[in-house]
Amino acid sequence: MTEYKLVVVGAGGVGKSALTIQLIQNHFVDEYDPTIEDSYRKQVVIDGETCLLDILDTAGQEEYSAMRDQYMRTGEGFLCVFAINNTKSFEDIHHYREQIKRVKDSEDVPMVLVGNKCDLPSRTVDTKQAQDLARSYGIPFIETSAKTRQGVDDAFYTLVREIRKHKEKMSKDGKKKKKKSKTKCVIM
């Protein structure tokens, strides 16, 4: 069974824990209790493949930012979460993405942009803004509501699919490099 290491990042209060708990335990946590770091595991079937999701729910508070490099190193894919009623959390996505790329030393890291709290009427981040940002990053965008469960499975499952595509691409690139290195030079 394939294991996928997913990391949920975003500013404090955007609903990272609520999304994760909704996926794992099928219930909505409405009281806000700032996370330092929590880890969850769940076995699911995605596109006919049974897999184990190892999900790291991270601290959004700035005082825990020193811990970010460590979990970013171990993560295979990242859910970059903002709240649709919090423009600052949307603007912060850029910083999370840049930090992930720096730590992973790669421009090509599996990510999904997630606009959470889409059940709320007080939207300050337009869907088109988020779609445009995701398009500019070359990553999928999904709106979710941890409260109603809308888009929750889709967000995590899409990230797994992005990781699969990335692994497939990397193995193809690896095979191309191996083929090239088999060419021999004969000096007579």
Rank of each mutant, 00 (worst) to 15 (best):
K5L: 01
V7W: 13
V8F: 02
G12K: 11
G13D: 14
A18M: 03
L19H: 11
L19S: 14
T20M: 02
Q22P: 00
Q25W: 11
N26P: 09
H27G: 13
D30N: 11
Y32N: 01
I36D: 00
E37R: 00
E37T: 00
D38Q: 00
K42N: 13
K42P: 06
G48S: 10
E49W: 05
T50S: 11
L52W: 14
D57T: 00
D57G: 00
T58Q: 01
A59I: 00
G60W: 01
Q61R: 05
Q61W: 03
E62G: 08
E63P: 09
S65Y: 09
S65R: 04
A66G: 12
A66Y: 08
M67E: 12
Q70A: 13
Y71E: 15
T74L: 07
T74N: 09
T74S: 11
G75F: 04
G77L: 10
C80N: 04
V81M: 13
A83N: 15
N86S: 09
T87C: 03
Y96C: 08
R97S: 09
R97P: 02
Q99L: 14
I100R: 02
I100V: 12
V103S: 08
K104G: 11
D105P: 10
S106A: 11
E107I: 08
E107D: 10
V112D: 01
V112M: 13
L113R: 00
V114H: 00
G115R: 04
N116T: 15
K117S: 14
D119Y: 08
P121V: 08
P121H: 10
R123M: 10
R123C: 10
T124D: 09
T124I: 06
V125D: 08
Q131G: 11
L133K: 04
L133V: 07
R135W: 09
S136W: 02
Y137T: 08
I139D: 03
I139Q: 02
I139L: 14
I142W: 12
S145Y: 09
S145F: 11
A146Y: 01
Q150V: 03
V152R: 14
V152T: 10
F156D: 02
Y157R: 12
Y157F: 10
K165F: 05
K165C: 04
K176Q: 10
K180D: 04
K180S: 05
C185W: 04
